[in-house]
């Protein structure tokens, strides 16, 4: 750690603080080059698993079995990807994932939006308790609930059903989404809406024409968050969707790997499947990541 601090840099110097500083800055700094090298090495370590997944997905399985690994896709092929894309299990799971994810997003956004409106536009008895409950509930682990949820869905005949798993996902995602949207709603001043009403719009119209468009970025960010969670969820789906025909993509990937293991794992196809599941997630993730970090720890430093 001590090597790190020797060359703390000073971003965007406005005025030289003393005569010594500018001279030091212009000097070639071996420390900084060393640290940059370390940074690049760590970046390489961190990206390697993702790179290796994609590289293996684009390499024939026979080549992956060779004694020396190929670090670049020199034997480039799309066969692995196309064989996964035509796998009936994959397509079935894709359909299931799409249905579950979109039903979840629609319900989560509707429910959380109304609740966020209530807590950011009104002060009412029970408001603080509701927020407190929401914040505690969002921390509850699926592992502490899934046996009971299994029993409940089993007695309702909703195991392996889109609606059954979606209800559980909605309950799981509503708390954080309420918390995230609350910030957006509070960010739109009520005066804007009232100004529109003074100009002759009714309250519902003023809300739809003025406030709602301003909330669009918040709704999109929350929608992407719900997408990521529902699309990737494994634990609850494993318990609530036991039938092979009802598998979502994460559950399908697990059984695809297990099935492959019986005849010597075809890692090229397994990596192609992982890549196909991961790529949409990575793309969507890059859209919301800033919002997610700030939602979790915003404003912790006000120095």
């Amino acid at each position: 750690m001590s090597a790190v601090v020797t060359d703390t840099d000073t971003p965007a110097p406005t005025a030289p603080a003393s005569g010594l500083r500018p001279v030091r800055r212009r000097r070639v700094r071996p420390g900084k080059i060393l640290l940059s090298g370390l940074g690049l090495l760590l970046a390489l370590v961190w990206v390697f698993p993702v790179y290796w997944m994609m590289n293996s997905a684009l390499t024939p399985d026979a080549i992956l079995g060779a004694d020396t690994p190929n670090f670049f896709p020199v034997h480039f092929t799309l066969t692995n990807l196309s064989s996964v894309l035509t796998d009936s299990g994959f397509l079935n799971a894709l359909g299931m994932s799409v249905m579950v994810t979109f039903l979840t997003i629609a319900l989560v956004l509707a429910f959380a939006f109304l609740a966020a409106l209530a807590i950011s536009r009104w002060r009412f008895r029970g408001r603080t308790s509701f927020i407190l409950a929401v914040l505690f509930i969002q921390m509850l682990p699926a592992e502490g609930l899934f046996i009971a949820q299994y029993q409940m869905m089993s007695s309702l005949g909703l195991l392996n059903q889109v609606i059954g798993i979606s209800v559980l996902y909605v309950a799981m995602l509503v708390p954080f989404t309420v918390w995230m949207l609350r910030g957006f709603v509070a960010g739109v001043p009520i005066e804007l809406e009232e100004a529109a009403m003074v100009d002759g719009l009714s309250r519902p119209k003023a809300f739809i024409r003025i406030t709602f468009p301003l909330l669009a970025p918040g709704l999109i960010a929350s929608g992407v968050y719900a997408f990521l969670q529902a699309w990737n969820e494994f634990t609850t789906a494993l318990v609530i969707l036991p039938a092979e025909s009802a598998q979502t993509l994460p559950i399908w990937l697990r059984s695809f790997l297990s099935a492959s293991a019986n005849r010597g794992i075809n890692w090229a196809e397994v990596m192609a499947a992982s890549t196909l599941i991961a790529v949409p997630v990575i793309i969507f993730f890059l859209f919301v990541q800033g919002r997610m970090t700030s939602g979790l720890v915003s404003g912790a430093v006000k120095g």
């Binding site: 840099d9 900084k32 690049l40 970046a43 698993p49 993509l249 990937l253 697990r254 991961a278 990541q289």
Partner: peptide
């Protein structure tokens, strides 16, 4: 904080890629 700007951006992008990878895909890799 202490590296060249482009190194920092490279680090941030690779960290984001790791963060974005779905759990099941990550364990499989």
């Amino acid at each position: 904080r202490s590296v060249h700007g482009w190194v920092r951006i490279t680090m941030q992008i690779t960290l984001l890629l790791a963060w974005a990878t779905p759990l099941v895909a990550a364990v499989t890799v």
